[in-house]
Nucleic acid binder design. Structure first.
Lengths: 297, 297
DNA sequence: TTGTTGTATTTCATTAATGATCGTTGTGGG
DNA sequence: CCCACAACGATCATTAATGAAATACAACAA
């Protein structure tokens, strides 16, 4: 401390994050749990303390200036560390939390076999987050990730957990009534159910989009809805084999789709080692995929 | 944000840092600029929010528990990022600040040639910090460092800036009156001035301590005082040649001390590149040492 | 023992921060 | 063109946080 450190209030930085993310005071007010007038004052105070103009005040909300963007990047690095603290805090609990992020379908698979990851009472609690980006891992929004490509960032530990294949599925009734489902004409002749663009994390959705040209008959944001739709005979859908193959109400009506077959990787932080519960879940998860590897290909 | 994030007040974390560093409320109160009662309340509040016991309350102050130590390590990582913000802020100023850390004698050398580093009005302002540890560089307490060994951490960029040699110096008057100063008997027969253990950052102090056995006649915490003492004839001292050689009031009375000759390195962050002023000072500093390299050996 | 010095905590008056409300200002739709 | 809407800014009563002073407590020295 050279001399009197001009005091930079860390709480202001935290609120700045909310305002920057929400793009305005009213949105941030709801998210951060403080009122808009307070946010207004804190932000002007922060600008004064830093001697920088962080926002353009528009009628439509707050827009970050170039300086604001620079600050945001730095505060996000602080947020990353703060998340590490929050996670550390959760592990103080007698029942710590392990956050797993994966694609939509993989999260369904994990949920189905949850009992293998964590004992009913004694084991750590599990949070399943759907996302396709490594970011939520490097920013400490999750502890473990299942991803379809190898991470290139350093600081991330990875284990290959085998490949996953996709195929076309439909209800026995629908397939019987629509023989084209068994042939290559299926893309034009049949109805389809798919994930919406927003919730799709993998390649299968865009691959299907390319084939059927237009929007599918049914777009769902939840994988569960896609399954229900297909089972009820609304149409066909593209599923990982580990989902479709174990679904009694569906029959496979295609070969595995070569273009969609890819490897899966389990990724975690290098520093996750300090947490016994993360390590435990990581091992159980790896073991879970190993046990079911036959149903993936 | 999974759901309602239990709000962790970042300002509490910042205050926690002061309490942990000061080892008590009263010390932290002076450093952080808030009163002890407030700190007491904030710390109990933080403990409650985290659900952890961070301190042992002793009569002699606060002592960190194991959980407190764990939190400290994590908050220090936040502090590092916050320092990056403060430094970014200073570079918003029309006259940005570049912080240089080095050993006691090197900082004297830099101060003497400051005009070569920064123009009188237009150039960046300079902060000279004395320290021996790479920590203050990796923790963003400084931008540039002059060190006597190669950094092993990654993320630090290094340039070798030549070697530095030491010798024994004294005032002409003292050396004339004490002929032993010219011989190996000088360590026992002469008076000495040296840096105190607290302010000594290099090897020369401990080397001298080993030779003269007892404490020197004069121990100063400031290099300037050591110089003044030697010039006024109080005794001998060990100096880098780039200091002693340019001091009119001193004469060299030994060969260069081989055991103390070592290389010097200029170290900076890899990410310093984004700041033009740091780069400018870095280049000037390197150039400065290159120009004077003859006076070092 | 007893006084002294350092510490943290409690009390309470003061101060500062907060949020409901209203006013203002643009934007976009009819 | 006008009007409803949404957003920020200002005002002021309310609430929460703060710090000075007093208290309590342990360690240390005489």
């Amino acid at each position: 401390m050279p001399f009197k450190n001009e005091k930079l209030n860390w709480e202001d930085l935290r609120l700045f994050l909310w305002v920057a993310k929400a793009g305005g005071l009213s949105g941030a007010s709801a998210l951060a749990g403080v009122s808009a007038p307070t946010l207004s004052r804190r932000m002007t105070g922060l600008e004064k303390a830093l001697g920088a103009t962080l926002f353009e005040r528009l009628q439509s909300g707050y827009r970050l200036t170039a300086q604001g963007e620079e600050l945001l990047a730095r505060v996000q690095e602080m947020e990353e560390k703060s998340r590490a603290i929050q996670q550390w805090q959760k592990h103080l609990d007698p029942r710590p939390v392990v956050r797993i992020t994966s694609g939509a379908w993989t999260s369904v698979f994990i949920a189905r076999h949850l009992h293998q990851l964590s004992e009913r009472q004694s084991g750590p609690r599990i949070e399943l987050l759907i996302g396709a980006d490594f970011l939520n891992l490097s920013r400490r929004e999750a502890d473990l990730a299942i991803r379809n490509k190898m991470p290139e960032q350093q600081g991330l530990a990875r284990r290959r957990i085998g490949s996953v294949a996709f195929a076309v599925y439909g209800s026995p009734c629908y397939v019987e009534n629509n023989p084209q489902a068994q042939s290559e004409e299926r893309f034009e002749a049949c109805d389809w159910a798919a994930l919406t663009a927003g919730s799709a994390t993998g390649l299968s959705s865009s691959w299907l989009q390319e084939r059927i040209g237009e929007s599918p008959r049914l777009s769902c944001s939840s994988p569960h809805s896609v399954l229900e739709a297909a089972i009820s005979g609304a149409g066909l859908c593209v599923l990982p084999r580990f989902i479709g193959g174990s679904e009694k109400g569906l029959v496979c009506c295609s070969d595995p789709i070569d273009a969609l077959t890819h490897n899966q990787w389990q990724v975690s932080h290098d520093e996750s080692r300090w947490s016994p519960s993360i390590m435990q879940v990581s091992r159980s998860l790896f073991e879970l995929f190993r046990q079911h590897q036959d149903s993936f290909v």
